[in-house]
Amino acid sequence: MNLAATTQGFLSPTGVEIAFILVGLVTLGAAVMTVTTRQLVHAALWLVVALGGLAVEYLLLTAEFIAWVQVLIYLGSVVVLLLFGLMLTKAPIGRSPDADSGNRPVALAVAGTAAAALVWVVVDAFRTSWIDLDGPAQGSTDTVGAILFRHWVLPFEALSVLLLAALVGAIVLSRKHAKGSETGSATDSDSEGER
């Protein structure tokens, strides 16, 4: 809970905090680049940087298992899948002029307002809350393994079923059916004309 709220001032950062802030800036910058760059493949690569930065943040928060799972899953498979997707949909190499839709101003307004509101609320709510990082590591592998297979075993199994279903579904969806896709592609090319 609030550990020594009175002894630590607001602007007296420890080393962990400085590291956290610096990595956080990198992460945020990479995320911004992801959503604004016009080169599609570069967007995926900036996403790699952002996700990697987050893994470092997890480490700083003593959640090491999650950090490595993040690297493994997100950086290892999710981003690779995204790159495959870009390749299979013949994403243009280099700048593409229409990477952003016409919705930009609205998106900017909504996101900006949401950011402002949420930041203000969060800062106001947790002004006097400090995380204590000096105790035993909260996210060590044996801790996480213990709780996963002791307290969270059922959701864990359900999750594996979910992954199986997703696997099967992805395969089914992307098969080329004889009757489904051929007639579909003939009629849908002119329905695409209506905006």
Binding site: N103, V106, A109, T113, A114, A117, V121
Partner: peptide
């Protein structure tokens, strides 16, 4: 028909409600 428009409007409304609640 543009999903992005729909989601934008939805979220704009949500943000307004949230600010109002706060």
């Amino acid at each position: 028909g543009n999903v992005q428009t729909y989601v934008s409007v939805l979220l704009a409304g949500t943000v307004v409600l949230a600010i109002a609640a706060v």
